[in-house]
């Protein structure tokens, strides 16, 4: 069973030989970039460089997936925001939104551009997916991610305003989020056409550390349902933070699997959702994988598996400066321990 078969069977809930170790979020490494002779700031605007860098984590460490994009600004840029890729940065700075689309409450009545699938870097992502798929697609599952409606709304307008309006003028926010869902679906459909095997919806702005479970149910859940029901490929819903109070709502949104981070108590989540639910997680991608020792990496992998995850998967993007020995330790431990449960 190769990595691709293992991951696809997992999504179909068919028997597999061991727990896979993969992700639906960014996982490029500095070692990968350097091996290829690229610069981090350069890969965001070049489909081939992006795809080759994405493939390098599998090639170097046997990580069981290939993921593009690398940054979180694709949808916002296509909608009309101006992004900053920090072209001259020496180190690693991920692109951010420089200019928002909505500057105040009165500007919230926007339209999704009719040619959204041809705007910004959406065509570049299609190309990157095709290259990645042709490169390693027979060996690993190729995935992509989109933002969740609330997180995307927090990019195209001030998050501060969005949060307050979620409380004061929920109707207005609901309308905007529904529109965001439409935009996200258009982008996700392009990724599907380009051949991805699964799509992760990253609704990390709507964590239960920030919003009440009530607001989550009333405001965040409906557009998330809309997105998931529109997807044809397997989908994963990721939310950061203490998600224990909302895992049932996350499942209700309709993804194939949910993804949670280390602040989620997976033993509890497993109890709540039952044996057959696909729960991906839940290690700290920075404090364990980047700054932890090899032993911490190994014990954390075992803990994730013992707690009952369906796949070991980081709680966030893997930070590129991850030491190679920790990536090796992670994969080695999964191979040794992942079949025992």
């Amino acid at each position: 069973m190769n990595s691709r078969e293992r991951v696809l069977k997992l999504f179909r809930k068919e028997p597999i030989d061991r727990v896979p170790c993969f992700s639906g979020m960014g996982n490029i490494t500095e070692t990968g970039i350097n091996t290829l002779g690229y610069r981090f700031a350069g890969i965001h605007l070049d489909a081939r460089q992006m795809a080759e860098t994405a493939a390098s984590t599998f090639r170097l460490y046997g990580y069981e997936c290939g993921i593009v994009p690398v940054d979180l600004c694709v949808e916002a840029e296509a909608l009309g925001c101006v992004i900053n890729v920090y072209p001259h940065a020496e180190g690693i700075l991920y692109p951010t939104i420089k200019e928002k689309l909505i500057h105040n409450e009165d500007e919230m009545d926007i339209q999704v551009p009719a040619d959204l699938s041809e705007r910004g870097r959406v065509p570049l992502m299609r190309e990157a997916i095709r290259i990645l798929k042709a490169d390693i697609g027979s060996e690993v599952a190729v995935g992509s991610y989109v933002l969740g409606p609330f997180t995307l709304a927090g990019q195209i307008m001030e998050l501060n305003d969005l949060l307050k309006l979620s409380f004061k003028k929920a109707d207005k926010v609901a309308k905007l989020l529904d529109l965001m869902a439409d935009a996200i679906i258009i982008v996700a459909k392009e990724y599907e056409k380009a051949g991805v095997d699964y799509i992760t919806v990253r609704e990390m702005g709507a964590t239960s550390d920030v919003l009440s479970p009530r607001v989550f149910k009333n405001l965040i859940l409906p557009p998330l349902k809309k997105v998931h029901s529109a997807l044809s490929v397997s989908s994963v819903l990721h939310i950061c933070g203490k998600t224990n109070d909302i895992v049932e709502s996350m499942m209700e949104a309709g993804p194939t699997a949910i993804s949670v981070e280390h602040k989620n108590d997976v033993v509890e989540t497993r109890k709540k959702l039952g044996d057959s639910a696909l729960i991906f997680g839940n290690f700290d991608a920075y404090n364990v994988l980047v700054s932890g020792t090899e032993e911490l990496v190994r014990s954390t992998m075992r803990k994730c598996i013992d707690d009952g995850v369906s796949a070991v998967w980081p709680g966030c993007d893997i930070w590129p400066t991850v030491p190679p020995q920790n990536m090796i330790a992670m994969m080695d431990e999964i191979k040794k321990y992942g079949g025992k449960k």
Binding site: N160, L163, K164, F167, V210, S212, V215
Partner: peptide, 14 residues
């Protein structure tokens, strides 16, 4: 006590 969340805090700060 999880009676207030971030939106409420932002309004209180205002």
């Amino acid at each position: 006590a999880q009676e207030y969340f971030v939106p409420e805090i932002l309004m209180c700060a205002d």
